[in-house]
Design a binder for these strands. Structure first.
Length: 302
DNA sequence: ATCCAGGCGGCTA
DNA sequence: TAGCCGCATGGA
């Protein structure tokens, strides 16, 4: 059988490495929205309303990635939505050189560009995922957060078994909007989180919050709009702005992972205070999102 | 057992 | 506006 193959161009290719992205993508064994099999990355995504499973591999040069459509078999699927999705997800249209140059001038970041060269800020092209994941994960340890996320996705997300693998789409807001808290609390969501998730899903499902609305806002407007949602504070708003809107100045001051990474790199006796964090991150400006992401990466093995 | 976790809302002053 | 507190539950 001949499978549909799609080339996905990569910008700033000298600063891209597919292999460098895989450790971050594989950081949790409870991940169920994509899978890593050897040097292949597999994912189901929605293309013109239809689920499509793609296998992504490195190109023969860093200037492009290769996507192969595994399902559906038969008629070709539209290429552009797949290209757009993967480009956003892996930030293939990003230009890292200015950030890499900046890391050389910042003692906190120096060395990260070499250590993880070619790693792109892995994003979330789906707005509901980018808003609800911080709600799910806030104030609990990451292991438990991934457990909750896995339950959320496998209970309420679209599922298809292709070959030996169970693929899922992130739950649609309309599905979550129709839930009651009592359907989430037995899955060990706190009552507050259950209420926040349902209310946020309703905002999206009923059109009071939309991708186009958010797309028209600048960083500060979008931050304020997100914080107006119950359960979304400054940390969650900036998380969404970083992973979904890809505002480069997004900074997650309240992030325990960032705090621990700074503590480890500077060998501080304790986590930095909020005032110290502001001092460390103030010079980052348009490099803040990448600085944060690379510091997160530094917490993983290798 | 104790402390912490990729925070947030709400209350008080 | 800033500071404190309760939350809610698993992991280490």
């Amino acid at each position: 059988m001949i499978r549909q193959k799609i080339k996905i161009p990569v910008k700033d290719a000298t600063n891209f490495s597919f292999a460098a992205c895989l450790p971050f993508l594989g950081r949790s064994d409870k991940e169920c929205l994509h899978y890593i099999q050897g040097d292949k990355l597999l994912k189901m995504l929605l293309v013109a309303g239809e689920p499509v499973v793609v296998e992504i591999t490195a190109g023969t040069t860093a200037a492009y990635l290769q996507a192969t459509v595994l399902a559906p078999a038969g008629d070709p699927v539209p290429e552009q939505p797949i290209i757009d999705y993967i480009t956003h997800w892996l930030h293939l249209d990003g230009v890292l050189q200015p950030f890499y140059d900046y890391t050389l001038t910042d003692p906190l970041l120096n060395g990260l560009a070499q250590a993880y060269h070619g790693l792109r800020l892995v994003g979330m092209p789906d707005l509901f995922e980018a808003i609800s994941w911080p709600i799910i994960g806030q104030q609990i340890n990451l292991t438990f957060a991934y457990t909750l996320r896995q339950r959320f996705i496998t209970h309420f997300g679209y599922h298809a078994r292709i070959g030996e693998t169970d693929f899922y789409l992130y739950p649609h807001p309309a599905v979550i909007a129709a839930l009651t808290p009592e359907q989430l609390t037995p899955m060990q969501f706190s009552r507050s989180k259950a209420l926040y998730l349902i209310a946020t899903a309703r905002e999206l499902a009923e059109g009071r919050l939309s991708e186009s609305q958010l797309a028209a806002m600048d960083y500060e407007e979008a931050r304020e709009r997100l914080i107006a949602l119950k359960g979304i504070g400054n940390w969650s708003a900036n998380y969404t702005l970083m992973k979904y809107r890809r505002f480069p100045q997004s900074v997650l001051l309240e992030d325990v992972g960032l705090q621990n990474a700074i503590k480890a790199r500077l060998q501080l006796p304790a986590k930095p205070t909020m005032a110290e964090l502001q001092q460390y991150t103030a010079p980052w400006k348009e490099h803040a999102a990448y600085a944060t992401f690379y510091l997160w990466r530094s917490l993983l093995p290798q």
